[in-house]
Design a protein around this nucleic acid. Sequence first.
DNA 1: TGAAAGCCGAGTAATTTACTCAGGATTAAA
DNA 2: TTTAATCCTGAGTAAATTACTCGGCTTTCA
Lengths: 138, 138
Amino acid sequence: MKISAKGEYGMRAMAILALEFPAGPVPLREIARREEIPYQFLEQIFIPLRHAGLINSVRGAKGGYILAKAPSEIKVGDIIRALEGPIAPVDCVAENDADVCSRSTACLTKGIWQRLRDSMAEVLDDITLADVIKMSDQ
Amino acid sequence: MKISAKGEYGMRAMAILALEFPAGPVPLREIARREEIPYQFLEQIFIPLRHAGLINSVRGAKGGYILAKAPSEIKVGDIIRALEGPIAPVDCVAENDADVCSRSTACLTKGIWQRLRDSMAEVLDDITLADVIKMSDQ
DNA sequence: TGAAAGCCGAGTAATTTACTCAGGATTAAA
DNA sequence: TTTAATCCTGAGTAAATTACTCGGCTTTCA
């Protein structure tokens, strides 16, 4: 029930981008240095974040990354989904609900996983990056 | 954010034991057959469940496994903890709270993980095996 | 032009997962 | 008292996943 380093690093990087949102684009090197994340790994992590439309890149010297929307418009759930895939403790209750469990007895436990999934999604979709940086400066 | 096959199989097996609780011990072979779980893998899964005191074994012919307590006394959270370890999306907020995150900036995201952990634990500790079998026969 | 940045596909070492294998110990029933 | 059914255990292993690295190209500012 753990998220991967990709998800954890990505969330920390996005929190930095939220903090620096007013200041403009932040280069990956700086994020890597501040958060002690391997630079080349961070590059890989930013690909799905960009494809999900959560960040914009500015190429060339003085470039970097910046949130595509205000921190208050970006839900933690969006970030997790971009990096870790659909929120679901087991595949058969994936959020797209392409529910393909042939087993009848799987239904014994399906209810549990649905409730867990819903509770996880509710928490993650209730917190925005604005909340994240507000939480931490207290 | 997925549970492993170990956790999923284990939960299904425990649901069977809850169903058959009044009838006495169920041999592993039968559970393996009914739930289409590899028998030798299921053997491995039952070791931590027994060590956690959730099931009792009856050795020899006509033996098998039986819940150590009534289904209403066994929380889904107990099963997950026995099979998957402490409920925590990242190690630094493990339930024992041996919080060892040296990083100050890790605290940017710590609040998220704590809230997610608490919400997951609340759901899983709110559902007992009695609820599981009640849910499914509707 | 050159340095600072992002972009990208491929490769790889380490770890974890999902099992299997071989055999021993216990007990009910024939 | 043998036999078959069952639990118990440690070790091994193939496949998948994770957590990266490598090399090189492209874009842009000064």
